[in-house]
Design a protein around this nucleic acid. Structure first.
Lengths: 229, 229
DNA sequence: ATTACTAGTGTACGAGTAG
DNA sequence: TCTACTCGTACACTAGTAA
């Protein structure tokens, strides 16, 4: 049980969140320790110390810039804030589901590739209780609300389908969410970690060929409910 | 400047959030101090003390139940967590706008009443830069995603239109958000604090009669973009 | 099992100040 | 200005324990 906890205390989390509000999320931003202190309700000195400690913990990067300081969150730092956000979001929205609506299109996303590999069949079965049809139903999402919803899937833990090794090549774990298609067919939504593949696509898998089962063709609308819990 | 701050420290916020995750949001939930302590990464004793302090601060209510304890957040406690959530959400979603789509209907919501009062004309002008046409465009929102979006407006600060006094009667402040209707007309969305009026309605105001300007009638679709910042 | 008191301790703070 | 050191203090913790 030598598992790294990646859990931070109250002070760390709130400091990270405040940094995020100051736009220090993915790129360096000039953050003066007194401004940060004001935002946190502590002195400049305390804010400075917190930044140093967060850096030691690997949660932020600091860079001296002129007389001032530039700061940005690291991957771990972002992960912590996103996990916190996800938990809070789940708690505030009693409903633990996201409803998606989009139009079918034929494409071959990363998910489609994974699901076509025989090595993933067993892991998928163990995680979801079904062996996916080798192909995904691709939905094109439209509208900022849908896109944001799609992005928000990245913040949730979901169900992890474990990876495997095939000879020399290693295939990593895949994250997905249990889902229901058109209120009828059980399945899952694949949430591949930020790829170049843009966020307007939802890849859906199921134990059967959804396209046939639903009698849908390209351009038709389709709704999917993803369960976060 | 006797303004109540309603700001809590790191430890308070994270404790409230953890309680929320344990479903102690609006109704009493049995929360043992050791479970809460585990969730927070502190001892049972520290968790117990935190609850007592939060109660003193008016952020939670405690009730002894059998050998255990039941806890729920108060209005102030909820407000703090929601404000925190709103800030975090705003920071994580670079986009600071919400797109709504709904269908027109004729109704007379609370917002329609306010906007018809002459006393609000000046406050509206000061806050938004225009004097609203005396009447609202009512949109009926459909779908859980839209409803959730509508609810999420409650979490954001928005623009406050100050209240006024007319003889004996006092009219309170009104919260709204700058918005754009059909990508063409500037206006605002009214976010009346949780009324009996249900959350599937979006009330839109503008300097002109939107219904005429857009040439829309009941049942027609209409899209509105609300700006959170 | 609970909650929550008391005692003792360490950590995170504000203040002062140097670079 | 800025960051970040040291110092002294106070608060929030853990541990022990009663009810």
């Amino acid at each position: 049980m030598r598992r790294r906890k990646l859990v931070a205390g109250a002070k760390e989390v709130t400091t990270l969140v405040e940094l995020l509000k100051l736009r220090a999320g993915r790129s360096f931003v000039e953050v003066s320790s007194s401004k940060l202190g004001d935002a946190l309700g502590v002195t400049q000195q305390a804010a400075s110390r917190r930044l140093i400690e967060l850096e030691k913990a690997g949660l932020v990067e600091r860079a001296h810039k002129g007389r001032g300081l530039a700061v940005r969150l690291t991957g771990s730092g972002l992960k912590i804030t996103e996990a916190f956000y996800a938990g809070l979001r789940g708690a505030l929205n009693e409903s633990n589901q996201l409803k998606f609506r989009g139009t079918l299109f034929r494409g071959f996303g990363e998910g489609g590739y994974y699901v076509s590999l025989k090595g993933y069949a067993r892991p998928f079965f163990q995680a979801l209780g079904f062996e996916p049809f080798p192909g995904t139903l691709n939905l094109r999402l439209v509208g900022e609300a849908m896109l944001e919803q799609r992005r928000s899937l990245d913040f949730f833990a979901g169900v992890e389908v474990s990876g495997f090794k095939d000879g020399g090549r290693t295939f990593g774990p895949v994250k997905c969410f249990r889902a229901e298609v058109e209120g009828k067919y059980p399945g899952a939504v694949l949430a591949i970690e930020r790829t170049h593949y843009d966020s307007s696509v939802l890849e859906v898998i199921a134990p059967l060929n959804l396209r046939d089962a639903l009698g849908l063709k390209d351009g038709d609308g389709c709704s999917v409910t993803a369960y976060l819990g």
